[in-house]
Write a protein that binds this DNA or RNA. Structure first.
Lengths: 152, 152
DNA sequence: CGATCATGTAACATATAAAGTTACATGAAA
DNA sequence: TTTCATGTAACTTTATATGTTACATGATCG
């Protein structure tokens, strides 16, 4: 399978939105991410359903942030995407009759479970506000070099 | 992307081989795993190159174990497969000019890196011999119920 | 030596899932 | 009522694992 970059993408969108007042059209956000407006709507749908963002149709419509950035973690955003698979590997057969495969599965599941739990835990420790703070630092140090946030 | 089950598959093969003296043809191993002989050869190629198994052509040929099972870990086997991606998720762009994406990548890379490191560490703690021991326990308890290792 | 067996490998086919695209319906504002 | 923007279905493209066919290579058996 292709590598899933939806979390990366939706975080990019949210952080862009946090930099200035909205609303933002899917068209605008898509241009900023070099992708298609429909892709934006797709990855934002879950966040809208959970109330993290709002969307309005028609003139002056678009997407707006609708949550406290210091309260929403990467784990919340991940869940809003539908909690897609975290690991690229898995067992050949989930409930095998073969004891050999059961032994292999048991060992792998232990390791897989630990890694998934750690990843989710790390996601839970990072809020969108923290990402924003980090971004501000990066902008600050780049300004010292006379470059803009999107500068080459 | 489809879930990668090569590690699961190759461990299954190795553990089957450890249960009785070889050699085993790709044909035989493929039947035990409900797959194709070429798939067996493919996932075993890396292990052969590293000397964990041997292969012989012609009459009486096939695959044989060629390592100390108590010395080879799941991590070694994983490496022999070519160290395929562990995580199903990744960043949209690896080296972005956009500072927003850099901030997102930094946060995600931290979490991804931790999870990968933990997974590799867990793999490194489990030897093939340990899998064999676990299998023997499973066979033992199933025998108490009057069933065979491949029983329904 | 020649037939058979088994691996080695390239080439092609299939399956799955993300990402991108097109088309059109829905609804809000000018 | 025209225009704008989202909502969504359907289709295409791309990437990757898996499965399959075909054939070359080399070893053993007769």
């Amino acid at each position: 399978m292709k590598r899933d970059s939806r979390l990366s993408g939706v975080l990019h969108v949210l952080l862009h939105m946090a930099q200035q007042p909205g609303p933002f059209t899917s068209e605008t956000l898509a241009r900023a991410m070099a992708t298609n407006p429909v892709v934006i709507r797709r990855i934002m749908a879950g966040l809208r359903d959970l109330g993290y963002v709002g969307s309005e149709k028609g003139h002056g419509g678009g997407w707006t942030l609708a949550c406290d950035l210091s309260k929403v973690t990467l784990r919340d955003v991940y869940a809003a995407l539908g909690s897609p698979s975290l690991l690229a590997m898995g067992n050949r057969t989930e409930a095998p009759g073969c004891l050999v495969e059961q032994a292999v599965n048991a060992a792998l599941d232990q390791a897989f479970g630990d890694a998934q739990a750690l990843l989710l835990s790390r996601f839970g420790e990072v809020t969108l506000a923290m990402l924003g703070d980090d971004l501000r630092k990066r902008v600050g140090s780049r300004k010292l070099q006379g470059m803009s946030a999107h500068g080459a």
